[in-house]
Simulated scan of single mutants.
Amino acid sequence: MYRHLALLRGINVSGHNMIKMDVLKTLLEKAGFQNVQTYIQSGNVFIDSEEEHGPSVGFKIKQEIFSQLGFDVPVIVITKEDLEACLNNNPYLKEKEADTKKLYFTFISKELSENSIHDLKMSQVKPDEAVIDKNRIYVKYAIGAGKTRFDQKYIEKKLNVKATMRNWNTVVKLLEMYSV
C-alpha cells in the first residue's frame, strides 16, 4: 500500500466547486482508496492506494469527482519528499528575518527546468519573487498572496501547466500529518 497526498485545485473558493470534506472522503472510500484523511476545506487529501504512480492516483481522483459531483478539478499528487523539500530547500529561509507568512509553495503538474523561470516573466510581478525546483515553485510575496498578480492562474498561463498553491503553515501541517 502506498500513501499519497492529493492536492485539489480550486475547490471551495468564492462559492465555486463546493465540496464538503466528508462527502469527498466518502466518495474516495467508495472508489477504493483506504485511510482517507482530509485537512481543511481547500482540498488536501491523504489516501492509501495499491497504485504507486502518483499521477495515476490523481487522474482516478479527478475522474471520481467529475463523475460523482460534476466538477472538473485538477489534482496534483505529491510525496512526503516534496513537502520536506519545501521546508529544507527553500532559498528564502536563508534570508535574515524570513517572514514565513509571505512564503508559499506552488505545486506543478510536471517537472520544470530551471530555465522555466524566464517564462514566468517575473519582472511583471515585482517585487514578488520565485525560484523553481523541479515540480514546485518557492514563492515569496512582498506584501501578501491576496494583493498580487502572481497567483496560480498566472503561473498556469505562463508555464502551460496545472498548479496549486499552499502557504507555509499548511505545508508544515501536511508534513506532520504525512507521518501519522
Rank of each mutant, 00 (worst) to 15 (best):
M21Q: 00
G43E: 07
S56Y: 10
N35V: 11
M18L: 11
V75M: 07
E114Y: 00
L103P: 06
D128C: 04
S56P: 12
K25A: 11
T26I: 15
S42T: 14
H118M: 11
T79H: 05
E111D: 06
D82C: 11
K96T: 04
L87Q: 00
M18I: 13
T79G: 09
V77F: 02
T38I: 05
Q37P: 06
E29Q: 06
A31R: 06
K121M: 12
E50A: 15
F66W: 15
I11R: 01
K102D: 13
L8M: 09
D82F: 05
E64D: 13
N35D: 09
S56W: 10
G54L: 08
G54R: 07
D99V: 01
Q68P: 13
L8H: 05
F66Q: 13
I78V: 08
N115P: 07
G70T: 03
E52P: 14
K62N: 15
K126A: 15
I61W: 07
F33C: 08
V23P: 12
N12Y: 01
P74V: 06
D82L: 14
L27H: 04
R9Y: 01
K60H: 14
Q41N: 15
E129L: 03
Q63R: 13
G54F: 13
V131N: 05
T26W: 13
Y39F: 06
L7W: 04
E111M: 05
G70K: 03
G70D: 09
P127V: 12
E51C: 14
N12L: 01
G70R: 03
L120E: 03
L83T: 03
K60Y: 11
K121G: 15
F105T: 12
L28A: 09
Q41E: 08
K96R: 00
F46N: 04
Q68M: 10
V23Y: 02
F107Q: 04
K121I: 13
L28V: 02
E95A: 06
I65D: 08
Y39W: 07
K62F: 11
E95W: 00
D119I: 05
R9T: 01
M122S: 04
Y104D: 13
V75G: 00
D119W: 00
N115G: 14
I65G: 07
D72L: 05
P91L: 05
E97C: 05
V131Q: 03
E81L: 13
M122C: 05
I61Y: 03
F107C: 02
V77R: 04
F105N: 10
F59D: 13
F107I: 08
M21K: 02
L87Y: 02
K126V: 15
I108S: 00
D72R: 01
F66K: 11
K94E: 08
V73Y: 04
R9E: 07
N17K: 10
Q124C: 11
Q124G: 10
F46K: 06
S42V: 10
K96M: 02
Q37D: 14
F33I: 08
S123G: 08
I11E: 05
Q34K: 12
S123A: 11
N44A: 07
V57Y: 03
